[in-house]
């Protein structure tokens, strides 16, 4: 119950941040554009996708229509995930460092809350804020597209939960950086380094890092690092595959769950013996 109180409080803390309203505003703008600009027109040869009155596709059969809609949803989901990482990080990077500041941490830890509970409550609260944003965009888009084109893709709806899961895995790294540094700037820089440098380089290791050395040991180390960290790009690729109704590989999700769990446990262990 105490964790739920912390989650609810952190959710409220997140909602109070202007950054998240920017993301919600961009989402709303896109939804308005889709709601007013997107339509379908049934012709003798099939259904045509229209954008602001202009045809954007040849006449499609119903299976082709579903595929075209899925492609649009997958593209928007990719964009949303980028927005979630960018705005979500800025909005939530401060949640743990601020909770560990002198004058606030004293209040939290003087209550009957274990330190890992404080960390878990704050992290889940941050993730819940992003989940709300993702659900808002995906749910509304699913509804608009369903009403306008008659395509009700459950995979697209389910992708919302998977996107929140990807953010949760990412947030385990944010948590570790936050507990170790207790500094928002370091958290943001470290998380972006992971996202755009370390994670990206490991994901595309066959095209880059592998070329630096032919040694088998070197490749084993690179592969090891890839599996130690949450596979953010790998999971995003699988979310796209799911929306496009292609075969989905769940291994990146399982590995990321395990590695995030270990990283989070590491953050909790560091916090456990810290003097405030």
């Amino acid at each position: 119950m105490k964790i739920l109180t912390l989650v609810a409080h952190t959710f409220r803390e997140g909602v109070a941040k202007a950054t998240l309203w920017v993301l919600a505003g961009i989402s709303t703008l896109i939804l308005i554009l889709v709601a007013f600009g997107f339509s379908t027109e049934t012709t003798a040869n099939g259904i045509v996708l229209m954008l602001f009155g202009n045809a954007t596709s040849p006449p499609l059969e119903s299976s082709q229509l579903a595929q075209a809609i899925a492609t649009m949803q997958a593209t928007l989901a990719r964009g949303l995930m980028g927005g979630v990482f960018l705005f979500g990080l800025f909005a939530t990077a401060g949640i743990i460092p601020e909770a560990l500041e002198k004058g606030i941490v004293d209040l939290y830890l003087s209550k009957p809350i274990a330190r890992w509970e404080l960390l878990a409550g704050k992290s889940l609260g941050a993730v819940s804020v992003m989940l709300a944003n993702i659900l808002y965009f995906v749910g509304a888009l699913w509804l608009v597209v369903g009403l306008k084109a008659g395509v009700w893709s459950l995979q697209f709806l389910a992708s919302a939960l998977l996107m929140a899961f990807v953010f949760a895995c990412f947030y385990s790294i944010v948590s570790l950086l936050a507990v170790v540094s207790r500094n928002i700037g370091i958290v943001i820089i470290g998380a972006f380094l992971y996202l755009f440098v370390v994670g990206a380089a490991l994901e595309t290791r066959a095209l880059g890092l592998y070329l630096l050395s032919g040694s088998a040991a070197y490749r084993t180390v690179i592969d090891g690092l890839y599996y130690i960290f949450p596979q953010l790009a790998g999971m995003q690729n699988q979310i796209t595959a799911l929306i496009l109704d292609q075969e989905t590989d769940w291994i990146p999700f399982v590995q990321s769950l395990a590695s995030s769990g270990v990283i989070f446990a590491g953050a909790a262990a560091v916090l456990h013996r810290k003097d405030f």
Binding site: H9, E13, A16, E101, K102, G103, I104, D106, L107, S110
Partner: peptide, 10 residues
Amino acid sequence: GYLPENHRYP
């Protein structure tokens, strides 16, 4: 119960 010095609330 604890009232710390220089406590801060959200």
